[in-house]
Design a protein around this nucleic acid. Structure first.
Lengths: 196, 196
DNA sequence: ATGAATTAATACAGAGACTGTAGTCAGTAT
DNA sequence: ATACTGACTACAGTCTCTGTATTAATTCAT
């Protein structure tokens, strides 16, 4: 997509990446709470102040790429094919997020930590909430006659709530990625039944 | 219920109440972020350290009585009348929480602040999540043949997600308590349709 | 090419939330 | 009366996060 940016921008991305990698490594080693921002900055060979130029808070270094997936769902909604009903759109949109939610090492670490570190959990939930608002708006636009604004919010909340709750339950039970994915899919199906 | 506790315990509750009242007053005056824990403690005439003996974090002084309502819903689930179906239990349980969610001044302030102060929002969401786990477990016990553990989690997540999302949407739109309550009820009805 | 404007990164200082620890004093039990 | 418990305090310290001024490197304009 976009490759040729100035040297300045490339350098910036490099320190950002260095911070993320240092953080992940340290978190895996010592656990989230036992790693200070100063340590992360040190490991990435920048000043502690620089950390906060890249991330608004310590938690966000782990949630760095979590926004991208919301865009996928939004796209899935707006690209609604004609004749496609509400339940189908719902399933397709969340499918986008679910499939892409479990790629890579970082996602696994994030899930593990989010399930155990309260402050991280809180920030993640908050992200979901702001994502919900966007999704609800998109849904409302896609089905203006069927869903008023409030109902669209309720429906979106139901989907996100169901998916994350079942994923968390599966995680706590010790399930692997495939089983977690299945649990999420079942949750979507459950809610989709409400608007069938 | 329980009235006759020792003088020591009564004193403790008095300082706790003093802290809550001081906090609410100050928050209304200056806004959440512009009030320090030290100020609250000062207004309640205790040491700053004492604040943290009563509340694990600054946010929790506002969420002090939020737990009580979860008990009501749990009770509603376990007191399931024979012949009562899953949707009915769902509606009745959440009705307990909704009705009692909007009494008093404190609830209104809490809602207003939770909608605007990120850190408070995060903590509130976190509470919902832990409440969800309990509710899901109770549901699973009440309908062991119909709901496995994961599905119960999904269903509970859907209800809580739908209710809080629609309430938040209504709040943001500037609706009053009655309209918010209606929005919540509709959200429950929506999800209940999925298990009808 | 050279001077001017940006800007990522830095050093430094400080606010504010929270914790550990040791001590005091009032309430409680024997 | 005596010993014990537990709420509260004082003090010192850690850590996250912010404001401000400065530096040095990249980018842009001439």
């Amino acid at each position: 997509m976009t490759e040729k940016q100035g040297l300045r921008e490339r350098k910036k991305q490099r320190t950002r990446q260095a911070l993320i990698e240092a953080a992940v490594r340290l978190f895996e080693d010592k656990g989230y709470d036992d790693v200070t921002v100063a340590e992360i900055a040190d490991a990435a060979e920048v000043s502690p102040r620089t950390f906060f130029l890249h991330f608004p808070a310590k938690e966000d270094v782990l949630l760095a790429d979590a926004d991208v997936r919301v865009d996928l769902a939004l796209q899935a909604i707006s690209e609604r094919r004609d004749r496609e009903g509400l339940p189908e759109v719902l399933v397709r949109a969340t499918e986008q997020m679910i499939v892409n939610a479990w790629d890579g090492e970082l996602a696994a670490l994030r899930a593990r930590l989010a399930a155990s570190v309260p402050t991280l959990q809180a920030r993640l939930l908050q992200r979901y909430l702001t994502a919900q608002a966007e999704l609800a708006q998109a849904l409302h636009r896609a089905f203006p006659d069927r869903l008023d604004a409030i109902t669209a919010s309720a429906l979106t909340g139901a989907v996100v709530g169901a998916v994350s709750a079942s994923a968390l339950a599966a995680l706590r039970r010790g399930d692997g990625p495939d089983e977690v994915r299945d649990a999420m899919r079942q949750a979507v199906a459950l809610v989709a039944r409400a608007v069938a």
